[in-house]
Every structure is written in structure tokens, then in C-alpha cells.
Write a protein that binds this DNA or RNA. Structure first.
Lengths: 236, 236
DNA sequence: AATAATAGTGTCGGCATAACACTAATGCAA
DNA sequence: TTGCATTAGTGTTATGCCGACACTATTATT
């Protein structure tokens, strides 16, 4: 474990990819900061910073998140991957532990951090040229998110407290970039047993109102039991 | 990106979990080194070391592997997770990027590294008390390996060049720790389309000899096509 | 009353999976 | 040579999941 003398230790940063959805579920957006200094001055980058002495890597990611946005509640946070190729930062050896965070759509406004000249949302599907290897990191994050959407409930937290099944479907279609069948989607998503109807409904236009659902945090019920329950409720 | 003065940078190590199978497919084994120095002197630990200036994280993991074992061919190497809780190393802030490696069973002998008093194989299911948070890291590695065995071909490389389907099944049962149905296993595994019969067979005892298979690296064929091909071959 | 727009529902066919039992091949012993 | 012990190797059936597919329900406006 003894470190050789004469070789400077690598720097370690934690970068946090902050994702949310645009109003009207039209876009998946990522928060980027404009670099004020060389290298890559003027380019956009994933917000990040050094790990403080007393904090864990995840705490560092949360702190970044709080520094960049006035985020009230965080839907999801997960370590993505650690990038450490030599040469990814021209200044020297920098190893970056990347996290990705999902925050609900409800009016998150970015505020410029201390050392970032500017901060704003970009579409994940229309990105500017990024600093360092951050383009590759975003690709990796999107791939991970898509994979997890297929078999977990990660995506649910991107919406607010209450949402309609149509909204949830739009979200999935937006991120997966493909159309989903309405009936199959509803069947599959309800079979997960993590969604419960609030009883209330919402009208979005001059149409039939849509029932509202809530994400059920208790994981007490199996999918099968949940479906049974759902069917029973429906037939009542 | 400017680093505050006065806070020493964290140290970064790469730890490599080296897994193999015991002779006779009786055990999943991990290579551990005995620590000669405090802290945790005398305890066993995952081999690891610092990242050298010019090398990537993965190259560091490969170097570790070469230093600890006379490994000829490496079946699989993947970044596992980065552990960086403060306090995981009593000497100060150490962030560890963990990799796990799978090496074929064929007579890999550990040789004691420079700063390790001793090195030997342990059963993953009967581990000694480990240094640092290494017990937790091994748990995490086993969980990842199990998950990936379910839907990828990771495990194939743990066997030698040629192997029987019974051996492969034993390997799966060993790692997943549950019995599998022979017919279902063979159907599923062949449907992956990555296994081809070598035409040769091997006798293990006083029994019917078993056909040998080889891992087909070309990923040219779809599972369905592979199954068709298999069936056609069989019926000939 | 008709219209426009979205919400909400059921069936059927194909495919993957799990459960399940017998025959085939080999060397050895009687 | 026959039987035995042991492992290799094979097919069918029932069930559940998933994809494809079209019509009715509800609302406000005209």
C-alpha cells in the first residue's frame, strides 16, 4: 500500500449528471455548466468537484446537486462508472467518479455555481460539444438509464407526486425513443405493483379526464397480488 | 476545478478481485493476499495497488492480476464499483476502484507479491475475516457475477478451452448456489448461440463419454439461427 | 347533436420457461 | 455375457409474458 515517492497522486472528482424532463414531457434534459477557464474554456461540462475530506462519494454527488440546483427532492441517485484514462484531462491525472441523478420535473431552476460561468439545461438528444470526455460519459448514462427503465421503476420519480398513466408512457417513450403500445404498457406497468390510484383525476384539455396514480414506496406486494388487487378494484 | 489548498488529496487504488474455480468444479475461489503491515496486519485482503502515471484504470487492474498470478489468459475483466467512504482506511482517505476478473481453472498458481507476505486462494463461500471493507466488496462482486450469469455468457470463460455441458452446468450451480434442471439448462445455454461442439468427447469416469464444446467468440449468429443449426446437426 | 381529442379496455398467438422421466453409452464385476 | 452403476443426452406439456391489434367512454365546444 506504500505509495512511491515522486509520482504526484491523481486528482479525484465526483461528477453528477443531473437529469430531468422538460415541461409537457417533451424532452429529457441534462444540466450542464459552462467552463470559464482553460482547458475547454467556453465548452459545456457535467457539474462536478472534488471530494471533501469528511464526505462519502455519494454525499459529494448530493452536494454537487444542491450546489447546482435548488433541488427539493431527489428521485434517484446512483453511481454510474469511474473514468480514469490518462490524458482525459490535459492538466494531469484526474479520475472521475460519475453519478447520475433523476429529479422530478417540478420547476427545478439551475443557479450558477461558484466556479461555473453559467449553467443551463440541454436536451440529451441535442447536446453541444462537451469538455473532456463528458460526451462519452453522457452516452454511458443514457444507456444505463434506458437499460434500468426496462426492468425497474427508476423512471417513476422523474414525474411529480401524482401523474397519469399517459404521462408515464410519454416519459418512457421519450427516454427509450420508441413508441409503446398503450394497452401493453399499462398492463406491464401496473403488474409491477408499485403504482396505486389516488382516486383523483385530472383534465389536461377538453377531453376525458385521466385517473391519477402515485408511486407506492412500500414493496410489500408481489406483482401477481398487485394485479389481482387491481383487477378486483376495477371490477367493483 | 481548482482544488482547495490545505486538504490532502485522496489516495486512489485499484483493487482486483481474481476469481477462478477449484479443480473438479467444487468451489468458486478468490485470490487474497495477507497483509504484512498495519493496519489489519495479518488479515487477508483483495490484491490492489496504486495507479501508475501512464496507465488506465483497467490497465492497472491487469497489471495487478499479472503481479499476483501467472495468469496466461484472462477470461473477463470488468469494473465493479468505486468505494470511497471516509474511514474505510484508518490511515486516511483512500478511494478504491474495484475490478473483478475471471480466470480459467487451468492451474493458476498465485505467487506472493512484493508487499504481500503471502497469497492464496479462498472459497468465496468460506471467507476469513478481511481487511478494510473488503468483505463488503466481495459480496458486491458475487452479486454482480450472479446477476450477469443469468443473461450473459460471462461464466463461460471460467472453464478451459473445451468443456462438457455437464461441467458448465456444475459451474452455474456452484456460483448461483441452486440446482438447475439439466434439460432446461442445455436448451437455454445452446439457444444463446455461443457454444459450438468440437466433435470430440471426453470420458470422466466409467461412464458414457460427454461431448465437448467450445465458446464461439464470433457473435454472428442469432440465438434462433443457432438453435436451428443445432437441431439440424443433431438430426443428421 | 355532432365533433374533436384523449382515456381506457380485452383477446389471441407466439415464445420463453419450468416441471417432469426415460434411454444411451461406457467399464467393471460377477 | 450379463447385469450393474454411473453419467450423458433427449421431448412434451402447461403456464406466463409479451406483442399486435380496434373500439368505446368521457369531456367541452360548436
Amino acid at each position: 500500500m506504500a505509495r512511491k515517492l515522486g509520482t504526484p497522486p491523481p486528482a479525484v472528482t465526483v461528477d453528477t449528471i443531473i437529469l430531468t424532463v422538460g415541461a409537457g414531457l417533451t424532452d429529457l434534459r441534462v444540466l450542464l455548466v459552462r467552463r470559464g477557464r482553460a482547458p475547454f474554456a467556453g465548452r459545456w461540462a457535467i457539474p462536478g468537484g472534488f471530494v471533501e475530506p469528511g464526505e462519502s462519494l455519494e454525499q459529494a454527488a448530493r452536494r454537487e446537486l444542491a450546489e447546482e440546483t435548488a433541488v427539493t427532492d431527489l428521485a434517484y441517485l446512483e453511481q454510474l462508472y469511474t473514468f480514469g484514462d490518462p490524458g482525459r484531462d490535459p492538466r494531469g491525472r484526474v479520475i472521475t467518479v460519475a453519478y447520475y441523478a433523476l429529479v422530478p420535473a417540478a420547476g427545478i431552476e439551475p443557479h450558477a455555481g461558484d466556479d461555473a460561468a453559467d449553467a443551463r439545461w440541454f436536451s440529451m438528444f441535442d447536446l453541444p460539444r462537451l469538455a473532456f470526455d463528458h460526451g462519452r460519459i453522457l452516452d454511458y448514462a443514457l444507456a444505463r438509464l434506458r437499460a434500468k427503465m426496462e426492468y425497474t421503476t427508476v423512471g417513476f420519480g422523474l414525474l411529480g407526486e401524482e401523474f397519469t398513466l399517459s404521462e408515464l408512457q410519454s416519459l418512457y417513450e421519450l427516454i427509450l425513443r420508441r413508441r409503446l403500445d398503450k394497452r401493453n404498457f399499462r398492463r406491464r406497468i401496473l403488474a409491477m405493483g408499485r403504482l396505486e390510484p389516488t382516486g383523483r383525476s385530472r383534465m389536461n384539455g377538453v377531453h376525458r379526464p385521466a385517473g391519477l396514480y402515485r408511486f407506492a414506496r412500500e414493496k410489500g406486494s408481489t406483482p401477481k397480488a398487485a394485479r389481482k388487487r387491481h383487477e378486483a378494484t376495477r371490477r367493483k
